[in-house]
Amino acid sequence: MVSVARTKRKARVWIQENTPYIVVISLVITLLVVFLWPRIFITINAGEAGVLYKRFTIGTVTDYVYPEGLHIIFPWDIMHIYDARVQLVKHKFKVLTNQGLPVYLKIAIRFHPEYELIGVLHQKIGPDYVNKIIIPQIESVMRRNIGKYTPEDIYTNKEGVLSNIIVLALEETGRKYVRISDIIIRSLDLPPPVAQSIEDKLVYEEQFKAYQYILAREEQEAERKRIEAQGIQDYHQIIADNLDDHMLTWEGIQATAELSKSENAKVLIFGNQGSNGLPLILGVPSK
């Protein structure tokens, strides 16, 4: 008990003698904690991913991506935070066609980094990967391929020219640790005289197609009338070749028989009335 009490007295004495030093050290530690707090306690928000750089050991950690939440690291290490959500960047540039005429394109690119490869992306390219690989790569592919076509092919998207070029750009850019979701062409402009001449040509082509359709329709109508006239002519010719007195008499008898069956009042006078000998029928209107 004596030794314990003696130790306590010594401790009190030491504290009293070194109080200024203890206060200074406590203040220094407190200031260090306040200053280094953001470097020690790292919060990764929703939709983000972290890449840790270990200053004194392996450097960039490429085999592990730090997920959302709170992480505690050494103050001399650095946590780089990436946006892992789908993002949108807009870009505009000028392209020359195979005739040397300019095409002004405005595009929008939807993309997001490959989550599992964010560490490699940070090590090989860095946070500015949009301006280092996405935009230059897409612009390069579109320049190279648009330069093979005429302004009219590009302006009218003939045979899906632009669609095919966009597919190529998606394939090539997707190999650089980034996934390109879509490339949207916001606008495509040509110099006004060139655009006007293409529009005029398209109008004339549509007018010519309409004229061809009208011509084809009139030709078909003329052919129909010719066939109809030929049929009427053939019909009359057949009748003329086969019509004689016996046929006329027989047709007259058939007509008379049909009339006699009618409910309307009538008067039939039999006897030779003319050269064909058919009966004379006097009809009386019914009341």
Rank of each mutant, 00 (worst) to 15 (best):
R9C: 02
I15L: 14
Q16N: 10
Q16T: 05
E17Y: 08
P20R: 14
P20H: 11
Y21E: 11
Y21W: 10
Y21T: 11
I25T: 08
S26Y: 09
S26P: 01
T30R: 07
V33L: 15
I40W: 07
I40Y: 06
F41Q: 15
T43H: 12
N45H: 06
G47H: 04
G47N: 04
E48H: 11
A49F: 06
A49D: 03
G50H: 12
G50A: 12
V51T: 08
L52A: 07
L52D: 13
F56E: 15
V61K: 13
V65Y: 08
Y66M: 14
E68S: 05
H71C: 06
P75G: 07
W76E: 15
I78T: 15
H80S: 13
I81C: 06
D83C: 05
V86G: 04
L88V: 02
V89W: 01
V89I: 12
V89F: 00
K92C: 02
F93I: 06
L96W: 14
T97A: 08
L101A: 08
L105W: 03
I107K: 03
R110Y: 04
F111H: 04
H112K: 14
E114M: 12
E116G: 06
I118G: 02
G119V: 07
V120I: 14
K124D: 15
I125K: 03
P127N: 13
D128R: 10
I133T: 10
I138S: 00
E139S: 01
S140Q: 11
V141M: 03
K148A: 09
Y149M: 04
P151T: 10
P151R: 10
D153R: 09
K158C: 03
G160W: 04
G160N: 05
N164Q: 12
I166E: 00
A169D: 00
E171K: 00
E172I: 07
R175K: 15
R175S: 03
I180H: 00
I183S: 01
I184V: 01
I184F: 01
R186Q: 09
S187C: 01
P191S: 05
V194P: 12
D200I: 08
K201P: 03
L202Y: 04
L202Q: 15
Y204W: 10
F208P: 00
K209S: 05
A210D: 10
A210Q: 14
R217H: 09
E218K: 13
E223T: 05
R224M: 11
R226K: 14
Q230F: 02
Q233Y: 06
A240H: 08
N242T: 02
D244H: 04
T249E: 10
G252K: 07
L259G: 10
S260Y: 13
S262Q: 15
V267F: 13
V267C: 13
G271R: 10
N272R: 09
N272Q: 11
L278C: 08
I281R: 11
V284W: 07
P285C: 01
S286G: 08
